[in-house]
Design a protein around this nucleic acid. Structure first.
Ligand code: SF4
Ligand code: SF4
Lengths: 143, 143
DNA sequence: TCAAAAACAGATTAAATTGTCTGATTAAAA
DNA sequence: TTTTAATCAGACAATTTAATCTGTTTTTGA
């Protein structure tokens, strides 16, 4: 059951939050991330490779290599990860699945849903990763 | 790309809204619903059979048969359809996909997301189908 | 009575998503 | 210099979801 984001996106968000909670610049191998978040290693590795292409994370090959954030946490928002993985189409789509949403043909829940979409976007766009550090540590456990 | 609900659920919601927009008690064959909503006939038929089992719609077999609402539109809420098809688990799940959500281990967006979930639930639970008639007609076209 | 049109049941296929594997390349450390 | 541990690329497998098909039963209306 999908809430909003694909598994790929959920794992990507979790992984990036995890990295942001560590000392800045420190290198995390995908094995560590997978173990801490209890998600498949190869999968998270693939996802982080994607995010590397998107310029959100950086990677270091070879022994004692791994992934790290490409920018300062204060420069990364959750919505950036969502945009890179799932895209931003959800924020223009209808909950009821009606095609061609337009203001002159509003669906039955248009007003409410439009507002919720905006709030959700705002939630993901207004704060940067550095704001989440403590809560991430509390949620995931010791880092 | 799933917004929140599965295709099954989206189609179910649309079909029920469609039926509620017609004169009460009138019979809609799945072919008509599929044509008007531009969704696969066999699929919507399956979904309405499910909703029949759930007691939300009723069916009439044989020639000039079809589906109809089992109760008065003022007795049906959108959340009832969601509950019957996708279930209500989304309203207890985390957007970030973290397991075991609990108040003492809130995830980084706990407060915001909790509020959005409640608002979404409210949107689907507070009004009954009869309130949506006009808007549905405007959205789907002449009925 | 009988042909047509519908729901219904259940099997099957198709597509998308999720997860795994293999091997190549790279770089650090022993 | 060689071993080890990592990313990376791309194929592959498994699972879930979406959609279709086949046939049966039921009912109406010609
Ligand atoms: S106008 Fe209606 S159909 Fe379009 S997104 Fe808003 S709620 Fe959905
Ligand atoms: S507490 Fe955190 S993890 Fe749990 S549902 Fe709320 S936001 Fe998600």
């Amino acid at each position: 059951m999908t809430v909003i984001f694909s598994k790929k996106c959920e794992y990507g968000l979790q992984a990036v939050l995890y990295m942001a909670a560590k000392e800045s610049g420190c290198v995390c191998p995908s094995e560590e991330i997978a173990r801490k978040l209890k998600i498949p290693k190869e999968f998270v590795s693939k996802i982080l490779q994607n995010l590397t292409d998107s310029g959100i994370v950086d990677s270091k090959k070879g022994k004692s290599g791994g992934f790290m954030l490409a920018k300062d946490p204060s420069k990364i928002r959750l919505i950036d990860i969502v945009a890179a993985i799932d895209g931003l189409d959800i924020f223009n789509s209808c909950v009821l699945g009606f095609p061609s949403c337009s203001p002159d043909k509003p669906c039955p829940v248009h007003h409410n849903w439009g507002e919720l979409r905006s709030k959700a976007y705002e939630m993901l766009a207004s704060e940067t990763l550095d704001k989440f550090k403590e809560k991430t540590i509390n949620k995931i456990g010791k880092i």
